[in-house]
């Protein structure tokens, strides 16, 4: 999981960082939930200004690739196929519990709609 930045490239440094993180996430090299280095640390390592890395992270966050959880840091977001898989696991856990409670499908759907606020 190596990021490389070439200051002599015609591609702006923030775009190099953004594109490489996006590429690693898309290729599965960075799994959902993986914590990324802090802006300051990555900027220090790559010899960039903190604002440059912050801009790359901001654009990644706006496109849903990463999420920032306050002081805990920046993490690779759960999205796309991963989101579907996580939803399926959560549904199976929910259904298992409902079977223990002997709740039928109609009642379960009613509870789900209510939980969604509709």
């Amino acid at each position: 999981m190596i990021l490389a930045v070439d200051p002599a490239s015609h591609v702006p440094p923030y775009e190099q960082v953004r594109a490489q993180v996006q590429g690693l996430v898309d290729a599965g090299g960075l799994a959902p939930g993986t914590r990324l280095p802090t802006v300051r640390r990555l900027a220090d390592d790559l010899g960039l200004a903190a604002n440059t890395v912050a801009r790359a992270y901001r654009e990644l966050e706006q496109s849903g690739v990463v999420v920032t959880r306050g002081r805990h840091g920046t993490f690779v977001a759960v999205r796309g196929v991963d989101r579907e898989r996580e939803a399926a696991v959560a549904a199976q856990q929910y259904v298992r519990r409902l079977r223990e409670l002997e709740v039928d499908v109609d009642a379960a759907l009613k509870h789900v709609r209510a939980a969604f606020g509709g």
Binding site: M1, I2, L3, A4, V5, D6, P7, A8, Q20, V21, L24, G29, L30, T34, R35, L36, P37, R41, L42, D45, L46, G47, G73
Partner: peptide, 13 residues
């Protein structure tokens, strides 16, 4: 301090 040039860094912590 290091000379300017290409740099690499780890994307994980």
């Amino acid at each position: 301090p290091l000379a300017a040039g290409p740099r690499v860094a780890r994307a994980t912590v």
